[in-house]
Simulated scan of single mutants.
Amino acid sequence: MGLLRKVLAWLSVPVICLFALLFYLARPFNPDNNRYLAWVIARVGRALLGIQCTVSGKDNIPTDRPTVVIANHQHNDDLFILGDLLPRRTVTVGKSSLVWVPFFGQVFWLGGNVIINRGRSTKAVAVMRATANAIREERKSLWVFPEGTRSRGRGLQSFKKGAFHSAVAAGAPITMICVSPYHDKTSGWSGRRESVSIRVLPPVETDGLTSDDIPNLMRDCHEAMQKTIETLPTSS
């Protein structure tokens, strides 16, 4: 039953994106399209998977100014876990291969999201710095998984610099979203998934910081997220 739930959840994504494509074509490159789409995908996906999420600190997400959101990245299912937490006018970062995913890739591109080639890290940093202009001038928020790859629930990995370059260059606060470790565990005959705990930490201000401050900023954010993740309740 758990496998069936997962198949249905992921089959729902291209179907939702197919209908959303009309919305995106009517408002191409409007970053707020992403928030609506992510909300629908997350709610439908969690319902199909039978996942219960408990969120604390949601009021810490700035609503009156752009922010750079960073979150720990565990599985592809993060799309369902975190999708409905996007702030207004949020763009995200994804690898270039996502563009070729049917329907999802097309709306990802039309949403004005940041597409990077992970094999060229220096170029990725340059893209993040350029994104700072969009944060300042177009008042876009940016969502990044700073680990750069999935941990599969094995703990917080080291961070890459891109998100922090963007935040510092734009003078935007960093909002940290911490998710408890989770896996594909199911319970009972219905195949419902384990519950997930999420905590949003108060924003870290970057105004006045320079590139020289980035290593310490990365370290402080990593330590804060690591400590928070360790205190989050796991599955019930």
Results as ranks from 00 to 15, higher is better:
44 V>E: 14
93 V>K: 00
122 T>S: 11
84 D>M: 07
23 F>W: 14
41 I>L: 05
130 A>T: 12
211 S>E: 15
31 P>M: 07
171 G>S: 07
80 F>Q: 06
28 P>V: 05
132 A>T: 05
73 H>M: 02
52 Q>I: 11
139 R>K: 15
103 F>G: 10
83 G>K: 04
133 N>R: 15
110 L>F: 09
230 E>F: 01
164 F>W: 02
146 P>I: 06
214 I>Y: 07
222 H>R: 11
203 P>R: 09
142 L>F: 07
79 L>C: 12
8 L>K: 09
114 V>Y: 01
160 K>M: 14
9 A>D: 02
196 V>Y: 06
91 V>W: 03
173 P>M: 04
138 E>T: 12
193 R>P: 00
234 T>C: 12
64 D>K: 03
33 N>A: 04
19 F>Y: 11
4 L>K: 12
193 R>S: 08
45 G>E: 02
124 A>R: 01
180 S>E: 02
9 A>Q: 02
173 P>Y: 01
218 M>G: 04
180 S>G: 07
117 N>R: 13
165 H>A: 06
158 S>M: 14
175 T>D: 06
118 R>A: 08
172 A>K: 02
221 C>P: 01
211 S>G: 09
88 R>Q: 07
202 P>Y: 05
130 A>G: 13
130 A>E: 15
153 G>I: 13
131 T>C: 13
146 P>N: 06
112 G>C: 08
18 L>W: 13
187 S>V: 11
187 S>Y: 08
230 E>Q: 08
27 R>L: 12
108 F>V: 05
211 S>D: 15
90 T>H: 11
38 A>N: 10
96 S>F: 10
101 V>P: 01
171 G>I: 04
101 V>A: 14
31 P>H: 10
10 W>F: 15
62 P>K: 01
45 G>L: 04
133 N>K: 14
143 W>D: 01
191 G>R: 03
209 L>G: 06
185 K>W: 08
25 L>T: 09
86 L>Y: 01
203 P>L: 12
133 N>I: 10
147 E>F: 03
32 D>L: 08
16 I>T: 08
219 R>D: 14
163 A>E: 03
47 A>H: 07
153 G>S: 10
190 S>C: 13
140 K>R: 15
227 K>R: 13
45 G>S: 06
116 I>A: 05
30 N>H: 12
175 T>C: 10
31 P>E: 08
142 L>P: 08
120 R>G: 04
135 I>S: 03
6 K>T: 15
